[in-house]
Design a protein around this nucleic acid. Structure first.
Lengths: 202, 202
DNA sequence: ACCTGAACACCGTTCAAGT
DNA sequence: ACCTGAACACCGTTCAAGT
């Protein structure tokens, strides 16, 4: 149906690669299989990507775009309350990671940042929404005044850690069965939120 | 020099695999190369491991043992103060991860936990030290009384998140240049420690 | 029990050649 | 510019065979 062999093979390859990543996992993902699914020869991808790693980086970039979208959507449905916004972002992040474990793995793979500067900016862009919430909280007095980047990074680390451990150990260690994922995440991040809030020890 | 072909090839293979992992990275690690370095045929490893994944799991188990040792050593040199102990553990964890990025990656790789129950218990064992500190803090009144597992997991998540993001984005995002790694880690985890301490808002 | 050699079905990557 | 076919040096895994 689609006409490959001309037009925009690059995006087609990324789309197929992403689909294969999600359905089959990262270990069985191969350039040859991607090319075959796209109906081109096994080395056509080299017209558009330097090597396999470059394809993974393209998938990672797309992943940061998706993550940003889901975070934005989650924040949009809650009110102005800073703590609610931070909770919504946290839930969206962990849910994304658990729903797309292979994608998150490709996004955090220690690529050469000098080789792929776009990936660095993409990850920073995805976290920019968090920074704006933190700064708003500091301005309206609901968060402590300290370095906003430090506060932002601590939240990111906490949320990413929950996601990473949940994926690696299939949520059984990180998230107790009796609670929902949301409840477990809320309980943990609230401990940090208490630390960065003014008037804590409620 | 060493006599393979008899005796304990299994441990030799794990040792060589670990060395290759550290020196060359995970992507170029192959069973055939490990076997060659051990001086055996390329399928001798199958006498001791079901497949390549089983070798990685063995490396991961060793990794948790090493991590536990470094955490224990770091705590041993500080006093009874709970906050100092938590800081020491945090620093040890992040330092280990940054010093052995390939090792940490293999340790958090989403293996089938039904297939490798030992790995699950190893990761829990490594975190048991953290749990005992939290419980001691709750008993002597320096930490809030809540669920000790929840507090423990929140610290683990925070510290693991710092490590994971630092590795993936080469510390440039996570750890500002002007500070030492220790200072940056301290600043972030202290925000959480404020949340889980009694009498916070110092 | 422990190891080997040959074989199979894959890989990523390169390169000369075609349009 | 964009793609192909053949080729190279690798993989993980299996299996019959040797001791």
């Amino acid at each position: 149906m689609p006409k490959y062999h001309h037009g925009d093979l690059r995006n087609t390859l990324v789309a197929i690669a992403t689909e294969l990543l999600i359905t089959e996992g990262i270990h069985t993902l191969s350039l040859r299989k991607i090319a075959q699914k796209a109906g081109v020869s096994h080395n056509a991808p080299y017209m558009h990507f330097a090597d396999k790693e470059a394809v993974l980086v393209a998938i990672a970039l797309e992943g940061f775009r998706l993550l940003s979208e889901e975070i934005e959507a989650a924040i949009a449905v809650v009110g102005d309350n800073i703590r609610q916004q931070l909770l919504a972002l946290s839930h969206a992040y962990v849910k994304f990671a658990i729903a797309h474990p292979n994608h998150i793995q490709v996004m955090f793979c220690a690529y050469d940042e000098a080789k792929y500067p776009d990936l660095c900016t993409a990850s920073q862009l995805a976290l920019h929404r968090l920074l704006t919430i933190v700064q708003a909280g500091q301005e309206n007095g609901s968060l402590i005044k300290g370095n906003s980047y430090e506060v932002t990074k601590s939240i990111w680390a906490m949320v990413h850690g929950i996601a990473a451990i949940s994926i690696a150990y299939k949520t059984s260690i990180m998230l107790p069965e009796k609670n929902t994922t949301e409840d477990a995440v809320s309980a943990m991040v609230n401990l940090l939120f208490d630390g960065i809030s003014r008037h804590s020890n409620a």
